[in-house]
Design a protein around this nucleic acid. Structure first.
Lengths: 225, 225
DNA sequence: CTATACTGTTACCTTACGGTTACCTCTGTC
DNA sequence: GACAGAGGTAACCGTAAGGTAACAGTATAG
């Protein structure tokens, strides 16, 4: 079992890593948002433990960015123990929240629980029509042809796959891809056109359908009459 | 979503039930171990919330008994906040542990998380005659034929399904679909005609019936008053 | 420093959604 | 029987939401 720990208190981190090792939990460690991003690039974890206060940003926005590109369960650590803090964290995709100071034993137990819950989701492959997506390797093919997507396009596709076969609300998409930006409808339209054109070359059946006023779906059938 | 709450503090229980109801969580309630056992006999829950200290036993042993007979995720409540207490609870199969006093909001969030983990999203379906509606995926079929509805028509159909098998008052419909607008009766009539024509092509039996002066119903036959 | 890719921006096109109107049927009441 | 009032249908059409293409600014690589 391997987790990612992002925590700027190096002493606490050292103790944690030490203790978790005894519990059979391997730890990748980062002390800043920047580090966390680069370290985690090529790795899949069983869980991610995020401190909220970090020197170059905060764990919350990091979690938000990862919410739809990564599938790891997230546990937040924070000295802040007000209800508002906790609710915010959960709304950012946290699956658990531990206030400092905490016992390392409890952290270990909760990590193990999160990791166990996540394991049944080992199936990391998505198939629809002639489209095939490897979510962990980030490789997409359509009818034997390899497709390369830009970061934004990948984010959108991952979001749609995550909700498949249900549609995703346009507002949700915009909030996910442009978390802080002012929501510009044109950016959304452009992104959509681009993803569409990449996913279906030539005369392949379109897979991205928008339900007016309701959102965007990934489906096979052409729902025309 | 329905949960089982076992808690001997009736005041706390009442508040909790009240609050959870507002969050859309239905609660079966028991104040003792005995009660909990008999109430839960025939029911499957999305999660179980157990107080540890109970008048006729303790939540821990209850959890232990259920460990192999029931599959629901368990969250413990307790005023005891020592590490040992927590570790014990987790070793008895707890998936979460909340120390009293706690905020009802946090309880609600954690319950929802537990319930989600347990149930890998099953979409809500509605079936009537040859009509089949997937409310999450927003797919409608009538006798294998896919039906596409406009946003307003969706809203209306969803509203009717929500109240099925009861009729929905015309005023309610108008207020739902045109919340701020001035209620124009013609708009209502148009919408209704359009939805009807979409739902039953050709000679299929009509499913939308208006009961004079009472409202609109989804029904198989016109079994009027 | 050039080349390339990615994304934000603009301008324009197309479609079908939904409001409007006109007219029809049916039922009940005086 | 005529009229009122509710419910139902069909057609018309302005408009906004959705879709596309081309351009520009910025980064990143080589």
């Amino acid at each position: 079992m391997i987790i990612l720990l992002v925590e700027d208190d190096t002493l606490l981190a050292a103790h944690s890593i030490d203790f978790l090792a005894k519990e059979g939990i391997e730890v990748d460690y980062a002390s800043t948002v920047m580090q966390a991003k680069s370290i985690s690039e090529q790795q899949r974890y069983d869980a991610i433990v995020l401190d909220i206060n970090l020197p170059d940003g905060d764990g919350l926005s990091l979690a938000q960015q990862w919410q739809h590109t990564r599938s790891e369960p997230i546990l937040f650590l924070s000295a802040r123990d007000t209800l508002a803090d906790k609710l915010t964290a959960f709304s950012f995709g946290a699956l658990d929240y531990l206030t400092k100071p905490f016992a390392l034993e409890e952290l270990a137990v909760r990590i193990k629980l999160l990791a166990n819950k996540a394991t049944p989701k080992t199936n990391k492959r998505f198939e629809l029509d002639s489209l095939s997506v490897d979510l962990s390797a980030k490789i997409i093919t359509r009818a034997q042809r390899v497709i390369v997507l830009s970061p934004q396009q990948w984010q959108l596709l991952a979001l749609l796959i995550e909700h498949y076969p249900n549609p995703v609300d346009k507002a949700t998409i915009i909030n996910t891809i442009w978390p802080d930006q002012d929501s510009n409808n044109n950016m959304y339209k452009s992104l959509l056109t681009r993803l569409r054109s990449n996913l279906s070359h030539e005369h392949e059946t379109p897979l991205l359908h928008t339900l007016k006023k309701q959102g965007l779906v990934l489906r096979r059938e052409n729902t025309d009459e």
